[in-house]
């Protein structure tokens, strides 16, 4: 554990609390892509199989993994059951097969060993890299977002961005790096660059998040 990873993980935790706070206080999941949230459940469910089939790492590791699994399922429940009328599927139109197909193929080619757990682990890494796309696509379509939604996205993007200095640090202290996680993590962070730019130049200056026409 190093400071970059710890802050990254805390940022990930914060993003989920911000999202829950947004849904509970506004009693609405307007502006949130159900498809992206469903992809995160898929990501956690396929990656954290190591809780059952892998070796024990640490109490921190187990608690965090259980939290991400539980909270992501709870968000789906809020969107599909409790606040269903506020969820508008007609603007959440990204085609999931464009993400699931390529990630499946990549996972079958690039993995640490050709076993179900490792293939699913690779799949989860590739899928996480692109899971935000339905959300960003929705943002693009509506052209604007509530401030709280942008705080959620910023915290979520910061999480993987902070994993990059963590990997650099680990490379120098441990002498190894994980090409699958690192390359996917770079792509994942890259997808946020446009968003980060508008977030910093507009939302943090107190302006509304609006995409240029």
């Amino acid at each position: 554990m190093n400071i970059f990873r710890l802050i990254g993980d805390l940022s990930h935790l914060a993003s989920i609390f911000i999202l829950l706070h947004k849904i509970q206080t506004t009693r609405s999941c307007r502006g949130i892509s159900f498809k992206t949230q469903a992809l995160y459940v898929t990501v956690f469910a396929t990656r954290y199989l190591d809780l059952i089939f892998g070796e024990f790492v640490s109490v921190y590791n187990v608690i965090m993994k259980l939290f991400f699994l539980g909270s992501s399922c709870y968000i789906l429940y809020l969107m599909k059951m409790k606040y269903k009328p506020t969820n508008d599927p007609s603007i959440d139109t990204f085609r999931l097969e464009y993400l699931l197909g390529p990630c499946t193929v990549l996972a079958l080619i690039f993995n640490f060993s050709f076993t179900p757990v490792e293939i699913l682990w690779s799949f989860s890494i590739f899928l996480e890299a692109v899971a935000i796309l339905p959300q960003l696509f929705m943002l693009q379509r509506t052209g604007e977002a509530e401030a709280i939604t942008t705080h959620y996205l910023a915290a979520l993007g910061a999480y993987r961005a902070l994993y990059i200095p963590n990997w650099i640090y680990r490379y120098y202290t441990e002498g190894s790096w994980d090409p699958i996680a690192v390359l996917a993590g770079l792509v994942q962070t890259g997808l946020y660059l446009d968003f980060f730019y508008i977030y910093v130049t507009k939302v943090l200056q107190g302006q509304k998040f609006e995409l240029p026409a």
Partner: peptide, 10 residues
Amino acid sequence: QTPAEHHDEL
């Protein structure tokens, strides 16, 4: 890196 090692990250 062995297959098990990358499971320590989230």
